[in-house]
Design a protein around this nucleic acid. Structure first.
Length: 484
DNA sequence: AAACCGTGGCA
DNA sequence: TTGCCAAGGTT
């Protein structure tokens, strides 16, 4: 502990600490909000709420919490549910590993503790997705055990109250503040105290404009008395997310798949694990590295005559991209996307035209998405069954065959099993025929609007897809409007 | 320690 | 409009 933390700990155990605890308890019990997870102290309900509230605002959580408890009213319901249903229930809430960990934790409780959350800090802390804060919150709120629950609110409140200048962004600082918080807990009132100090941070001792004049502990707040409440807490700024330019394909089906579009499921781990999305590829050079695939752009030939009516629509989404960047980039990127999807998924499509841009910001990455409408071509046999025809397949820029693009239709794909080599023109379109299969690549499927009710999508794709269905239904898609 | 993991509200 | 940040955990 730092010297200041040490001094604060001594105060917390003495007069100022007693003052803080008593004033806070009185205040909390008189003003506490009526929240759905405060109906009772059922450990399962407390647990679910604490997981949902991680890095997430109360107002955002409330509807999710109600839906979740409605669908999974007991630990056993959650433990036995299909994982997709849990994920779908979490759709839009973010940090989706929380959902998987919560269900794994529920299964742990069923198998190890007969379905009841144990009144034991070590056991609770060992549950998946339960860290120091959440363990303390569950133990204090559900079981009234005198454990600290130190989150961002508590660190802010105590930094100000004791005028601590430690950088709360450092993991080591939280440990010191935990000791102080533990010393402040009034006898027999751990649950209300911990909820009260968080409530104070959320309603009064807010980050930007704290309401010191109505704060129940203002009289003894060292930060306020020093006039430094706005400088505290000290917290180093997070690194800005790195930009990534991503090219997404909105592939419209034909033939038996007319009216459907192509989506794929993400891998089991990592970013947005197991969620569904539009197929997309990372543009080389990332989002800030200037011209993307300049060589391809040069080879792309003249742009088509059809242009958007508003210049702003073509504004570069990627940071650092020259503002004067011409619309030819769209053509180059369509070609790039077509080739990359062929390489990565052996999925052959014909990108038709730019539809719209979208942005999706994660904590550490910013996706600048360019979405292109595309027709389905066909699916190449995988490398194994294609028997080595792959090698030359994607280097066919100087193709010897005449262009014979196979128009996208379900029948084409289902004709299947043609044993011919494939090559591609400079726009990324397949030339001649290829070795075909009649099934989609692993993880891909055609969906209609109705299918989305059972599939979890990240918000950015949810918005894109909903807008797409809506626009198509009302005949407002660009191509349809201009095709007349 | 530092990077990885979402999303929305607000000034 | 952009930046900040919220009831954090895991690796």
């Amino acid at each position: 502990m730092t010297n200041k933390q040490q001094a604060a700990l001594e105060q917390a155990s003495a007069g100022p600490g007693l003052f803080f605890g008593m004033e806070l308890l009185g205040w909390y019990r008189s003003v506490k909000r009526d929240l759905p997870w405060r109906e009772n102290r059922d450990p399962y309900r407390v647990w679910v709420s604490e997981i949902m509230l991680q890095q997430t605002r109360v107002d955002t959580v409330i509807p999710y919490y109600k839906r979740f408890m409605d669908k999974f009213p007991t630990i056993r319901h959650l433990a036995e549910a299909p994982e997709e249903e849990v994920l779908k229930c979490w759709e839009g809430l973010g940090y989706y590993s929380r959902a998987r960990n919560l269900q794994a934790g529920a299964q742990q409780v069923v198998s190890e503790y007969g379905g009841s959350v144990p009144d034991d800090k070590t056991a609770v802390a060992a549950l998946k997705g339960v860290g120091p804060y959440t363990a303390g919150a569950i133990m204090s709120i559900a079981f009234n055990r005198p454990e600290p629950a130190v989150d961002g609110n508590v660190m802010r409140v105590l930094s100000r109250y004791f005028c601590l200048e430690d950088d709360i962004a450092k993991p080591s600082v939280r440990t010191g503040i935990e000791r102080i918080a533990a010393a402040l807990i009034p006898e027999g009132a751990a649950g209300d105290f911990n909820q009260g100090i968080m409530e104070l941070g959320a309603l009064i001792c807010t980050p930007k404009s704290p309401g010191c004049l109505i704060c129940p502990v203002m009289a003894e707040c060292a930060g306020r008395l020093a006039g430094r409440e706005l400088e505290l807490p000290v917290k180093t700024k997070a690194k800005p997310p790195r930009p990534e330019l991503r090219l997404a394909a909105l592939v419209e089906g034909a033939g038996p798949h007319a009216g459907a579009i192509l989506v794929r499921q993400r891998p089991e781990s990592g970013l947005l694990a197991r969620m569904w999305e539009l197929p997309h590829v990372l543009a080389p050079g990332g989002g800030s590295a200037g011209p993307v695939a300049a060589g391809s752009a040069a080879a792309a030939g003249p742009v088509r005559g059809r242009r958007r009516s508003t210049a702003a629509l073509d504004a570069p989404a990627a940071a650092g991209e020259a503002a004067a960047s011409p619309g030819a980039n769209r053509e180059a990127r369509m070609a790039l996307m077509g080739r990359a999807l062929a390489e990565e998924a052996r999925l052959l499509i014909r990108p038709r035209r730019w539809w719209r841009d979208a942005e999706h910001v994660f904590s550490h990455i910013r996706w600048d998405l360019q979405v292109y409408l595309a027709d389905f071509g066909f699916v190449l046999k995988d490398a194994a069954s294609a028997g080595g025809t792959q090698a030359g397949a994607y280097t066919g820029l100087a193709a010897e065959q005449p262009a014979a693009y196979m128009a996208g239709s379900g029948e084409t794909a289902e004709a299947a099993q043609r044993e011919t080599a494939a090559s591609y023109d400079h726009a990324g379109l397949p030339l001649a025929s290829a070795a075909l299969v009649d099934r989609l690549p692993e993880g891909y499927r055609w969906i209609r609007q109705d299918d989305m009710k059972e599939m979890a999508f990240p918000n950015v794709f949810l918005r894109l897809l909903n807008d797409y269905w809506e626009q198509r239904e009302s005949g407002c898609l660009p191509d349809e409007a201009e095709a007349e």
